[in-house]
Computed example of a mutant assay.
Amino acid sequence: MDLRQLEYFVAVAEERSFTRAAARVHISQSGVSAQIRQLERELGAELFERSARAATLTVAGKAALEHARAALAAAGAVGQAVGEVTGLIRGRLAVGMVSGCTLTPLFEALAAFHGEHPGVALSLREAASDRLTEEVRAGALDVALIGAAAPPRGLEALTVLSEPLALAVPPGHPLASRRRVRLRDVAGHPVVCMPQGTGLRAVFDRACEERGVRPSIALEAGAPDALADLAARGLGVAVLSASMTAAYADRLVAVPVEDAGAPALLALVWHPAHGPAVRAFVRHCRRTFGADPGAHPSGAPGRTFS
């Protein structure tokens, strides 16, 4: 007997019809019948009681059915195991990351993955978080490190950093003496922030919408350094994450936003229908980023959530 015969046998048993089984396995009815007859000869017993209306299992057929299913499942598992090994020998892994990212754990994960699976071709590209998310959904990227207000729907995610919003203003600014502010306090000042499509902007926009605040967006820039320079020159209140402000303590005052709502997230995202290379890379990311999303990972601060 061979696997093809077992496949046809299971199809007839489940469909209770040679005609429907033939359509299911995409061959002629006579072909299915011939293979089942050959299987019955090899087993020395009839597997079906045939009538014009249905094909029903005999006692021997019922005894054989679960074993046939198990054999097909085992064969499928062999194929999957070989496919996964092959994918980790000569596959590909396309990784995306937010623009300007210099997070050491991501690069450590890439290096560890490459050391373990040198046959997998790696690619790495930068873009804004919304673009990266769509490319993961579309399959153009296998996995991406994004900034977001919440994990994207329909994708699996690993949160590696969770931080509240903070403002950065020069020492002489009216908000500099405040221990903390509310979003409505920001509305009275020009704001400099990242453009739409970035994680920080998504968090800021959502918080303002929930509080009924309409901020005055004066200037936009895609890099935290640029936002800090603009704020230091008095051109607006910079909207950053809490850890970002630490890099500019020599010229800007950080002011927490108490009603900013949900924190800004930095997350690794991938499609649920992922392959072995993605699973292996995510495993390395879990190790290098650590289990605590509240702890700032090693690497240059102020370079995330784009």
Score class of each variant (00 low, 15 high):
Pro174Leu: 05
Ala226Met: 09
Thr198Ile: 01
Arg201Pro: 00
Tyr248His: 11
Gly212Pro: 10
Ser177Asp: 09
Leu240Gly: 06
Pro263Val: 02
Arg283Ser: 15
Cys193Gly: 03
Leu200Ile: 06
Pro174Ser: 06
Ala277Met: 10
Arg179Asn: 02
Phe204Ser: 02
Arg251Lys: 14
Arg180Val: 03
Leu165Glu: 00
Asp225Ala: 15
Met194His: 11
Leu161Thr: 03
Ala238Tyr: 09
Leu167Val: 02
Leu200Trp: 00
Glu209Asn: 05
Val278Lys: 06
Asp292Trp: 04
Glu209Leu: 15
His173Trp: 10
Leu165Met: 08
Thr288Pro: 00
Gly188Val: 00
Glu210Ala: 12
Ala231Arg: 03
Thr288Arg: 08
Gly172Leu: 02
Arg182Gly: 08
Met244Ala: 15
His284Ser: 08
Ala187Glu: 02
Cys193Lys: 08
Thr198Gln: 10
Pro272Ser: 07
Ala176Gly: 00
Pro190Val: 11
Arg206Asp: 14
Gly199Tyr: 01
Phe289Ile: 00
Gly294Gln: 13
Ala262Pro: 02
Ala260Arg: 04
Leu268Lys: 07
His296Tyr: 09
Arg283Ile: 02
Arg178Thr: 05
Pro256Ala: 08
Arg179Gln: 09
Arg178Glu: 06
Leu161Asp: 01
Leu252Cys: 10
Thr245His: 11
Glu220Phe: 00
Leu161Arg: 00
Val282Arg: 05
Phe289Asp: 01
Leu161Lys: 02
Val192Asp: 11
Val237His: 13
Met194Phe: 08
Asp205Ser: 02
Pro293Val: 00
Ala249Phe: 13
Asp225Ile: 12
Val191Asn: 09
Val192Ala: 09
Arg286Gln: 08
Val255Gly: 04
Ala280Phe: 07
Tyr248Thr: 07
Ser162Gly: 00
His189Ile: 07
Gln196Gly: 14
Pro263Ala: 12
Ala223Gln: 08
Arg283Val: 07
Cys285Ile: 10
Val278Gly: 05
Val278His: 11
Leu266Glu: 02
Ser162Phe: 04
Asp229Trp: 10
Glu210Arg: 12
Glu220Trp: 06
Arg180Phe: 11
Phe289Leu: 01
Pro174Val: 01
Glu258Leu: 14
Ser216Gln: 15
Ala246Trp: 05
Cys285Ala: 15
Ala260Met: 09
Ala221Lys: 07
Val160Gln: 03
Gly188Thr: 12
His189Pro: 05
Ile217Cys: 12
Gly188Phe: 09
Gln196Asp: 12
Gly261Arg: 12
Leu165Pro: 01
Leu252Pro: 09
Ala202Lys: 03
Pro224Phe: 14
Ala228Gly: 06
Leu161Cys: 01
Ala242Val: 10
Phe281His: 11
Leu183Asp: 05
Ala166Arg: 04
Gly290His: 02
Leu219Gly: 04
Leu230Asp: 09
Ala280Gln: 08
Ala231Pro: 04
Gly222Ser: 12
Val186Ala: 04
Cys193Phe: 05
Ala246His: 05
Leu252Thr: 12
Gly294Arg: 14
Ala260Lys: 03
Ser162Met: 01
Ala247Lys: 07
Leu265Gly: 07
Gly197Cys: 00
Arg206Cys: 02
Ala202Pro: 00
Ala221Ile: 03
Ala249Ile: 11
Arg211Ser: 14
Val213Tyr: 14
Met194Glu: 10
